[in-house]
Design a binder for these strands. Sequence first.
DNA 1: AAAGATTGAGGGATCAATCTTC
DNA 2: GAAGATTGATCCCTCAATCTTT
Lengths: 157, 157
Amino acid sequence: VVQILAPWLDAAEERAWRGFHAMRTQLLARLSRSLLEESGLSGADFEVLVAVSEAPGKRMRAVELGRALGWEKSRLSHQVTRMEARGLVCREECKNGSRGAEVVLTALGRRTIDAAAPMQLAQTRANFIDLLSPAQLRTLAEIADIVLEHLEADSSG
Amino acid sequence: VVQILAPWLDAAEERAWRGFHAMRTQLLARLSRSLLEESGLSGADFEVLVAVSEAPGKRMRAVELGRALGWEKSRLSHQVTRMEARGLVCREECKNGSRGAEVVLTALGRRTIDAAAPMQLAQTRANFIDLLSPAQLRTLAEIADIVLEHLEADSSG
DNA sequence: AAAGATTGAGGGATCAATCTTC
DNA sequence: GAAGATTGATCCCTCAATCTTT
């Protein structure tokens, strides 16, 4: 979101913030581009397929899926509509009680995610994980924990 | 882009990658939401206003602006069209030679960015920078440098 | 009314095609 | 032809409104 807040940040702060901003932007662009080229999937498609393919029975209630991904229900609904049109998943009525739908992986969806996941992993390693030392990875995880904890506390408190 | 690549990542790698992914997503959501609520600007609006407002004469050639932001020309064109409709910037023909347009900050654009920038800085501090130690900021900057250098080398080589 | 889900509109990002000026 | 810029199509995301079932 931010570019130049320079006058009010010291040099070290600015370097960290700008770096984070640029890395976030460019790494995401790289990974989502390669995913799209190699597998024909958007990042959102991929996340849905991974979540559903790991669920027992390769099916998941829509409301659960939304929670797992941290998505709004309308976003999930639109996304599933697009993916259903392409044959990657289908909707089925929930077994017990008719309130709620389930998202079910199709055979095509299964094949697609099985082919895409190893490639995406390789890209993630090559462009990120394997470039960093164990200490750097540890610090990054710490940073994420701190920031996420703050965001949660702040929104629920 | 990625959620669960767990089987092929060790615990430390997974923690760092998942943490980065979640932090990237949620921090961006928080900052862009507060920017929109407080100033009526999207992240893209903000970046354009900051860049133009810092240029000499509060004006900037479109091609330069695109380079500075790392945007495609069509993205910039669409964005400027929307911002022009809202009166935040306007287009003018380039002084020397008629090839190329300039994007010029309007009085409204000036007022808007002057009001928005301090709030956005405060949000960035409160939700990110001020939560981290100098050592953590330093490591994050290092990580960003490594990853960005790799991405550049990889795309140009 | 509340929970689960869908829909439509509108901003946003990317791609391919186009147009103009040099 | 190449650089600078615009346009239209399409997908993605958010919001507000709606619909259904309990």
